[in-house]
Amino acid sequence: MSTDDLFAAEEQVIAAAQELLENGRFHDKADGTLYADLLKDYQKLFRTTRRLMRLSDRNEQQLNALTQEQRLANEIIATKNKELEALSKKLSKYLSPQIYHSIFTGAQNVEIDSNRKKLTIFFSDVINFTETTDKLESEDLTNLLNRYLTEMSNIALEHGATIDKYIGDAIMVFFGDPESKGVKEDARDCVRMAVAMLRRMRELHAEWQELGAEKPFHLRIGINTGYVTVGNFGSEDRMDYTIIGSAVNLTARLQSYANIDGILLGHETYSLVKDEIAAEEQEPIKVKGFAEPVRCYKVLGLYDDLADEGMVIREETDGFKFLLDLQKRERSEAIAALEAIIARLRE
């Protein structure tokens, strides 16, 4: 049905009215004029109706076209968003999750900027990595290294570390930025992480030997707490979120002095974790840039772990602290000391 068909009835009314006027059916002239005026108004109203209908239809067409365009635009945006999401997911692997998160939530600006903070820093290095893996094919070496770094990174992330960088087989992470639980808890998390890493390394030794490494990997770990400058360093085009300062250098030195599969703590870290971690003071080490030899401590283990193994007896509640290291003191010595304390309590 055409638009004209829609208005066929109105057209017929107009045609009939015009015929009436032309045939001179009105004997009274005034009636004829009135009828002609009415017909003219009716014709105008009819034109207006058709015009408004046409305009309304066209507006609706335009609206539909715009809706279609909008739908297509939304589809393009959705596709682009997916591409960007995939891209950012790829890029995120080059960043520590905390740094990625703080950049993407807008908590941190991507600009050259830094500030000073007290952090706990961790360095680890595989002893004689090059010699140990010298006979491996490139693919095996890649698998071995990636497996090692993946395992260690997973543990780091589980403990809330910010992974600063991998330098070959070496790992540098820190605690306390961009998120911090407080200096003491950050230090404790860091040492717990280091202990967990060494535990996992022991489990992985067998697997690596199967892959062809003649000698199992061994680590040295250094941990230190101190003020560093943390932030974005580099140029506007290429920057790294990292830390710099003498505390960082000292951590690297502590790592190089650590025993095989050992953790060496700086004095400040030790002070923060000594309630939870058994450690033994070592000979102070001389470090470039430090006037005095630096005090350091070898980690023996977590007290909780040592208690489970029967190597220490530890009780701690508010206002009461008891720690007996059975590797350092004979049981009889401990009993005598405790009896003396009980006697004093009974006085």
């Binding site: 207006t48 015009r51 408004l52 305009l55 309304s56 507006n59």
Partner: peptide, 12 residues
């Protein structure tokens, strides 16, 4: 640039 039906009536 754009008119809805009511505005078209007002313009008339």
């Amino acid at each position: 640039i754009y008119l809805n039906s009511s505005s078209a009536k007002a313009i008339m």
